[in-house]
């Protein structure tokens, strides 16, 4: 019999980890929604974020939370470069070419990192790693709580950016009608640079956040990319808001199910949920039928 306390704890820890999944998923959703490009290397850009944070901490003693802007900017710049050098050339190419291109990126980044850093698992031990708050019977690890708060802040900032700024509205316009965007004087090419940079940059923030409480390693992107895909399909293709909510739902599903079945099967549960949604609501929880 599983006690209610355990369930409450699992729900809370699911929300906390889910909020990181959300960030990775939001990045993927943004790129997907605006350019119709499926970025298989999304999880690997997140890994870059983790490693930026790791090296900043290890070499210069920079607190992981202070390295968030650095992690974002480095990955943003790499994203813009990737867009200019690779993605731009396959934007109007058949989907197979796009998939091949982003898959090649995945291999280059993942195994490039492995060649450079070795395949080892690394950890950052922040001084506040073991600080735990208790609310009733629910315990909260400080790094995870911080991750949740930061992720929520980033998601809100991003939402406000897309909703209220001229550039945010222009980005959404580009995603809905490229030709009309040209005619409104929007530099579509630049918007795509921005979209890819932001998309991978946001995921890298997720990478920084997990680095404070989970091991990091060059191949970590594989797991998070898988989650990100579930998040995006679950939340509705290209819906950034949907991605945030569904990341949390998937986090909770995973951690609650781990109480009842072997934790090694938690991904299976996420996938079952995914299949269920596909059957019941193919456009995703917050998706619209047409784009």
């Amino acid at each position: 019999m599983v006690g209610l306390d355990y369930v409450a704890n699992a729900v809370v820890s699911g929300i906390l980890i889910g909020s990181v999944y959300s960030l990775v998923g939001m990045g993927l959703a943004l790129i997907w929604g605006i350019m119709d490009v499926i970025n298989f290397a999304q999880g690997d850009f997140m890994m870059i974020g983790s490693f930026v944070t790791y090296w900043a901490f290890t070499l210069a003693g920079v607190d992981p939370l202070l390295s968030i802007p650095l992690s974002f900017l480095v990955t943003f710049a790499l994203g813009v470069l990737t867009q200019r050098v690779v993605i731009e050339r396959v934007l109007d190419a058949p989907m197979v070419s796009q998939i091949t291109a982003t898959f090649a990126l995945l291999l280059m980044i993942r195994y490039g990192a492995e060649a450079a850093f070795g395949p080892y698992t690394r950890r950052i031990s922040v001084p506040y790693a073991d600080v735990i708050f208790r609310i009733g019977s629910v315990s909260l690890q400080l790094p995870r709580l911080v991750a949740f708060i930061v992720s929520l802040g980033v998601a809100l900032a991003f939402y406000v950016f897309l909703k209220t700024t001229y550039t945010g509205v222009a980005l959404r316009a580009v995603s809905q009608n490229r030709m009309a965007a040209y005619l409104m004087g929007i530099n579509v090419r630049k918007m795509y640079w921005l979209a890819f940079g932001l998309g991978v940059g946001i995921s890298a923030v997720g990478g920084t956040l997990v680095a404070t409480f989970l091991p990091i390693y060059p191949e970590m992107g594989g797991f998070y990319a898988l989650i990100a895909f579930i998040v995006v399909v679950f939340g509705g293709f290209g819906s950034v808001f949907g991605a945030y909510i569904s990341g949390i739902i998937i986090g909770v599903t995973e951690s609650v199910s781990a109480l009842f079945i072997s934790p090694s099967l938690k991904d299976v549960v996420a996938f079952l949920l995914f299949i269920l949604i596909i059957l019941v609501k193919p456009a995703g929880l917050f998706g619209t039928e047409q784009r």
Partner: peptide, 20 residues
């Protein structure tokens, strides 16, 4: 060629992207 899932206001705002 409107932006169908932007509001009327947002469509106008998208057109106000240029400096001009």
């Amino acid at each position: 060629q409107l932006f169908p899932r932007l509001t009327v206001m947002e469509n106008l705002k998208a057109a106000a992207y240029t400096k001009r």
